[in-house]
Nucleic acid binder design. Structure first.
Lengths: 196, 196
DNA sequence: CCTGTGCATTGATGTATGATAAGAAGGATA
DNA sequence: TATCCTTCTTATCATACATCAATGCACAGG
């Protein structure tokens, strides 16, 4: 819970009494490695703030292949925004890559916080805009860059994840096979590139 | 201007006097086919509501290739949201595919409308969430689907654009070469698929 | 009417990445 | 220590898509 309160206080300036009321609305949950928080068809009722640990969200296509949408480690929020906001059935899985400690943020929480505090509204705006910017960059990379470039971009952007996440998941995030990623890494090693 | 006022009234319930004040804030602009509205390095000062015509936004990679991010025909808004919101230099081009009539929406307009009307705030929220959902789907397609599938998806999603936009631009949007798209279309024709 | 310019098509060839299969290298667990 | 797993690598072959080059149209401007 400490990370979450720190995070929220840093991002939104909510007066203390209201803050205390709000904070009662969220719950903690511990999940084990491999445990699933959301499945396709379900409606995403909570956003998950990661206190400690590592989550991922991903789709599974009709040939059974996984495609990772997002990783979320400490101080990140993982969610299916569309499902949560529009009350639609999700088409994502969310599960835990490591034993994880999450804060459950309900839509109610967000709505109430928005009513109470214009500062929170602003924070929420920024979060949405950041999300859009991030997705934009990813689309652009997928359109224009080779596997190698995409991987380079990943490790500079998420050096921590590069170490914590198994390679086959990184490959999935990049839209390539684990074998291809292995080749790319070999190439990079040849070129005397060291990820450290 | 008619489309824009109709659009805004339908989306946000702003009391008439305030609406009249707001509407004075926007300007009209006519641009010719090929004319450019935004270049990389510039800050995106306006969102462009398309009254009539057709815009596109795109990046150019370091080998000179264009990658189309978005098309916008009547009643669509084209913009670089990140640049506009965060006041950062854009890395997009925006230009006109046809002679086009746009409404210039400044950040001021959006801020003022947000202050005046909670209904407008809500509309804006929905617009952002829709944007996220749309990008999410596109990322998922780029990660998981073949050129053929991506094209099929495009023509069912945007049958109008399929007719108005030159094929090489559609190819660019899909992340393939015009030659590949041509072959994909041939394949589909063989399979007795008719886009009509 | 000719001619230039941009776009779509087609063919030949190349290359990055996928598919499949097998082995090697840890980590966990008994 | 022995035995599983899971992950990562390596090798071979297959394929989707890119690249390069040529041709055919259509349409605009002289």
């Amino acid at each position: 819970m400490q990370n979450f309160t720190k995070y929220l206080k840093a991002k939104a300036n909510i007066p203390e009494p209201e803050f205390q009321l709000l904070i009662k609305k969220v719950k903690l949950k511990n999940i084990e490695k491999g445990e699933t928080l959301l499945r396709p068809g379900e409606i995403c009722r909570h956003s998950f703030f990661v206190e400690k640990g590592l989550l991922r969200s991903y789709t599974v296509d009709n040939s059974g292949k996984e495609h990772i949408i997002q990783f979320g480690s400490e101080n990140w929020i993982v969610s299916d925004r569309s499902s949560a906001f529009f009350n639609e059935p999700s088409d994502l899985f969310i599960d835990a890559i490591e034993d994880t400690n999450v804060v459950l943020i309900s839509s109610d929480f967000i709505n109430e916080a928005s009513e109470i505090s214009s500062s929170f509204r602003h924070f929420n705006q920024i979060a949405l805009q950041n999300h859009i910017r991030h997705q934009q960059k990813r689309i652009n990379l997928l359109l224009s860059a080779s596997a190698e470039t995409r991987y380079m971009n990943f490790i500079t952007l998420y050096p921590d994840l590069t170490l914590r996440v198994p390679q086959w998941m990184i490959a999935s995030y990049l839209g390539i096979t684990p074998e291809s990623l292995s080749r790319v890494r070999k190439e990079l090693a040849h070129k005397n590139f060291r990820p450290n």
